[in-house]
């Protein structure tokens, strides 16, 4: 489904990703862990098509097709979704208007008709209750004055509305208290199917108790230096990253 081959990327002459290889198949959950500054968010942004980063080598494929030339919106139309580590505040644009526009623009791009208002309303209702979001919340400006937890929940709400085939959740667990974490994890699990895939970027294995990954990768200096299963995450939680850094050195 998603295939990353020898991906190198830089910004302002600073190399951040140094040869990433990753294969994600439909139905899988991958966790990407790694110390601060190792390049996790950069990887997520490059997959989502942030133009500030320059891909200097390698490529990203969706269902066998290179997405190198595609803009962020075209990638979204292909089913890529990024839950931002730091969701952006957009004063003056309500969550509802934003999500309606996103859904209908995606439909338009696929040559489909706009979603009928009634259907949209029902979808908004269903998904907001899935994530236990108050309806009043939807008429507020996007992320404007939201608490850290509200922002993250709003990201997953958008994911639920857009039903992406590849969802990348960048530290969605940070800033969530245990109840919110459970709600968000429950939401993600409900959205998971054999047809889509999830990439979880996280520091803590806490989230992985709720969303069980099939694979765990460790990113260090812009490279995946170790891959394993859930047990690797537990080991990282206990021992930290230093032993991996040591292993890499040797």
């Amino acid at each position: 489904m998603l295939s990353i081959k020898n991906l190198h990327a830089k910004i302002d002459d600073k190399n951040i990703l140094n040869g990433i290889n990753l294969e994600v198949k439909a139905g899988e959950v991958h966790a990407i862990m790694g110390p601060n500054g190792s390049g996790k968010s950069t990887l997520a942004s490059v997959i989502a098509g942030k133009e500030e980063y320059e891909v200097t080598d390698g490529d990203i494929y969706i269902n066998g097709e290179s997405i190198e030339e595609l803009s962020a919106e075209e990638r979204a139309h292909k089913g890529i979704f990024l839950s931002f580590q730091y969701p952006v505040e957009i004063p003056g644009v309500s969550v509802t208007n934003f999500i309606k526009t996103a859904i209908n623009e995606t439909r338009k791009a696929k040559g489909e008709k706009e979603m009928p208002a009634k259907e949209m309303l029902k979808l908004l209702k269903d998904k907001s209750s899935l994530l236990e979001i108050d309806r009043k919340f939807l008429s507020r400006s996007i992320n404007d004055g939201f608490s850290g937890g509200e922002k993250k929940r709003n990201e997953i709400f958008q994911m639920a509305m857009l039903e992406p085939s590849i969802a990348i959740l960048d530290e969605t667990d940070s800033g969530l208290d245990i109840d919110a974490l459970r709600i968000v994890a429950n939401g993600v699990n409900k959205l998971k199917s054999s047809k889509n895939a999830v990439i979880l970027i996280t520091h803590y294995q806490r989230l992985l108790d709720y969303i069980i990954p099939d694979y765990v990768h460790v990113l260090h200096n812009g490279k995946i230096v170790k891959s394993g299963t859930k047990e690797l995450a537990i080991e990282l939680e206990e021992k930290g990253y230093d032993w991996i850094k040591e292993e890499v050195k040797n």
């Binding site: 133009e51 952006v88 003056g92 857009l162």
Partner: peptide, 29 residues
């Protein structure tokens, strides 16, 4: 705001519409 623009685009909203949305937001008050 470039980051805001990327945020909107990453949700499937094309550049022109995304810019328009930001301008609406700006003028909404």
């Amino acid at each position: 705001d470039k980051n805001a623009l990327f945020y909107l685009k990453s949700r499937g909203i094309p550049e022109k519409e995304a810019k328009a949305l930001l301008m609406y937001g700006f003028a909404n008050n």
